[in-house]
Design a protein around this nucleic acid. Structure first.
Length: 634
RNA sequence: GCUGCUGUAGCUCAGUGGUAGAGCGCGUCCUUGGUAAGGACGAGGUCAUGGGUUCAAGCCCCAUCAGCAGCUCCA
């Protein structure tokens, strides 16, 4: 008999050789039915795995996230079988689970098209209906390599696998695939699925390798779960800043300037509101603001290291036969400003901000609305300080960053620390000092972070602040980069207490990152329902009929005098249509005015997303909304 | 940059080798109204661009440009 410990602490005795699946039956028929895999002594295994003595065993069901993932992975195998049966020339590569689904990379010369999805799904349904058991077989690494000799993808997978035991899974009596497992007991346990998309993906993520086809699918325990997921995707798409930006006339793009955004009047109102706020916060945190040229002599970029490390991303031009570059970063220009006069340690830390317009040549395939463009405005700053001041300054930047993010209602962001890349300037020792300074500051603020080895800027390590868009794609906002190299390259100096000249430390930092991207993120974050302080049109007055147009104008003038961004709908439409239109334009406040309101000097206030209305005197309305703007209420 | 898909009215999209379509929006007129879209009429097109096939191309073929999804890369 073998002793088994269950997650609730209870102990159970089972006969030697009992499998995890049989154990589930022993615990209860309900559990046995729901069981799809097990965790024995911390390791996820098939239900067919025998249990040895003194094992901790947990039966995994679809209620566990591991269970869902196992089902999705099994679904990937079902899809692989379906694809192989339709296109026998298919060579399978790798089929992992991802958030909300799975994909399978395949090597097949004939492109799979969205119009093929239906017949793949039909084939998959056949396989699921046949309820074929997943049968695991194991062999040694050498045997596996022998078995798959000639299959470069699978032998490569074996080489990357841990341990000496290599496993295969057979679905029924036909399709077999190399796989670590575990899997569902049989294909019948696969829930509701859908093929989502197909796209190219390099083998091993390496652009020099063959482009494979990556078929994405999703899989959920029930049809309702799948439907809910698809509905969620639809809802998310409605928040897409590219659609909302067009619908609400905020910005546009044109073939004449791919990757360069045209900001429209309404978009600029949001932009300027953010700039005003940004200036106020930076003033509070002791920053000065400068502006440097967009075009600078090529020699400067040789000196800064950009020529050697960033040239592929830069645009160049020529003035009177002399080479110039369009700046991709603001730091060299900032260094020139620093050098215009002497500096003392007494001035430090010197926090110099710049809303700098930079141009970077991005590959054509990576452009993405306002999130990835070729021209953007960075809310940049360079802090010049002594080595002793680094940690405190970084802490200050983190506090400023959090204060700004909070003002926009962002709570869900994560932080990454990136270390020395292959292409870099500066000694290893300098990199260690800089990296540790960033780590210490994060530790001091008790901030959790992820490390990205080799992802730093070429001049120093960095801390990045990331946020997710409506479709859960992650985007970088702010960044803090420590730089010991650029000040030396530009011979920046300050006079220290002991009257000797020393090289300052430079901290590059951006909080919102790029104004363009940040506005895109805000559009998705709010679903374009901007808080009052950001809304392009804060209030619209809707006249009941032409007879009330004059009163509407009186109200409008009063609100304009109070600095509110106020529009007026005097069109030849009924009030219902005016409300519907204002609603579709996501107006925060609608003021309906008719003869009644004109008589009493009031407005009937209708708040976005609220069916209730109330009538108030104009001055009361003004007081309330002005307070809401001052508070930046979200 | 790579793989695949897409490109038709301001927007969203139908369109089967043989006369260019709808809804919304826009303009004019009617309507003068009370809380999420009143009615009539009208204007609006180099079917992305350039080649090719064909008696005939929005539709088929090739190239280019742009967009979308993903990969790689990045704020």
């Amino acid at each position: 008999m073998a002793k088994v410990a269950l997650p609730d602490g209870s102990k159970l005795e089972v006969a030697d050789g009992t499998t995890a699946g049989q154990l589930a039956e022993q615990i209860g028929t309900g559990l046995a039915k729901a069981a799809i895999a097990a965790r024995i002594n911390g390791e996820l295994v098939d239900l067919s795995t025998p249990i040895n003595d003194n094992a901790d065993v947990q039966i995994i069901t679809l209620k566990d996230s591991e269970g869902i993932n196992i089902m999705r992975h099994s679904c990937a195998h079902v899809m692989a079988e379906a694809i192989c049966s339709i296109w026998p020339a298919t060579k399978l590569v790798y089929g992992p689970t991802v958030e909300d689904g799975f994909y399978y990379d395949i090597d097949l010369d004939e492109p799979i098209r969205p119009s093929d999805f239906q017949r793949i799904e039909e084939k998959m349904r056949e396989i699921v209906k046949a309820d074929k058991p997943f049968i695991r077989t194991e062999m040694s690494r050498a045997e596996a390599l022998d078995k798959l000799a000639g299959n470069k993808y699978k032998t490569d997978n074996i080489k990357h696998a841990d341990g000496d035991v290599i496993s295969f899974y057979l679905q029924g009596d036909g399709f077999e695939d190399l796989c670590r497992g575990p899997h569902l007991p049989s294909t019948g346990k696969v829930g509701s699925f859908k093929i989502m998309s197909v796209a190219g993906a390099y083998w091993h993520g390496d652009p020099t390798q063959k482009m494979l086809q990556r078929v994405y699918g999703t899989c959920w325990p029930t049809q309702k779960d799948l439907d809910d997921y698809l509905t969620r995707l639809e809802e998310a798409k409605k928040r897409d800043h590219r659609l909302l930006g067009k619908q609400l006339d905020l910005f546009s793009f044109n073939e004449a300037a791919p990757g360069f955004a045209f900001m429209h009047a309404k978009g600029m109102i949001i932009w300027n509101a953010i700039v005003d706020f940004w200036r106020a916060v930076h003033n509070k945190y002791g920053y000065q603001e400068i502006k440097t040229p967009i075009i600078l002599n090529e020699q400067l970029w040789h000196k800064s290291g950009h020529w050697d490390n960033y040239k592929e991303n830069m645009y160049f031009t020529n003035i009177d036969g002399v080479g110039y570059a369009i700046k991709p970063m603001n730091c060299p220009g900032g260094c020139l400003v620093y050098k215009t006069r002497q500096h003392s340690y007494r001035e430090f830390p010197m926090r110099i901000a710049e809303l700098g317009l930079v141009h970077r040549h991005e590959a054509s395939g990576v452009m993405h609305g306002l999130f990835r463009v070729r021209q953007f405005t960075q809310d940049d700053a360079h802090i010049y300080c002594t080595p002793e001041q680094i940690e405190q300054e970084i802490i200050g930047v983190i506090e400023l960053t959090f204060e700004m993010y909070r003002a926009f209602g962002f709570e869900d962001f994560h932080i990454e620390l990136s270390t020395k890349p292959e292409k870099h300037i500066g000694s290893d020792q300098i990199w260690d000092v800089a990296t540790n300074a960033l780590k210490d500051a994060l530790k001091h603020k008790a901030i959790e972070y992820k490390i990205n080895e080799g992802d730093g800027a070429f001049y120093g390590p960095k801390i990045d602040f990331h946020i997710k868009d409506c479709l859960r794609r992650s985007w970088q906002l702010g960044t803090i980069q420590l730089d010991f190299s650029m000040p030396a390259r530009f011979n920046l100096v300050y006079t220290d207490r002991d009257n000797t000249e020393k090289t300052p430390v430079m901290i590059h930092r951006a909080v919102l990152g790029s104004f363009e991207r940040f506005i895109g993120i805000l559009i998705e974050h709010y679903g374009a329902n901007f808080p009052l302080w950001l809304a392009p049109e804060q209030v619209r007055i809707l006249a009941i009929s032409e007879k009330s147009n004059d009163y509407a104008k009186v109200v409008r003038d009063k609100l304009k005098d109070a600095q509110l961004r106020c529009g007026m709908d005097l069109s030849d439409e009924k009030i219902n249509a005016k409300i519907a239109k204002a609603h579709s334009e996501k107006l925060p406040y609608m003021l309906v005015v008719g003869p009644k309101e004109a008589r009493s000097n009031t407005v009937n206030v209708r708040i976005r997303g609220d069916k209730e209305t109330r009538t108030v005197v104009i001055d009361d309305f003004l007081r309330t909304v002005k307070q809401e703007i001052v508070e930046k209420k979200i």
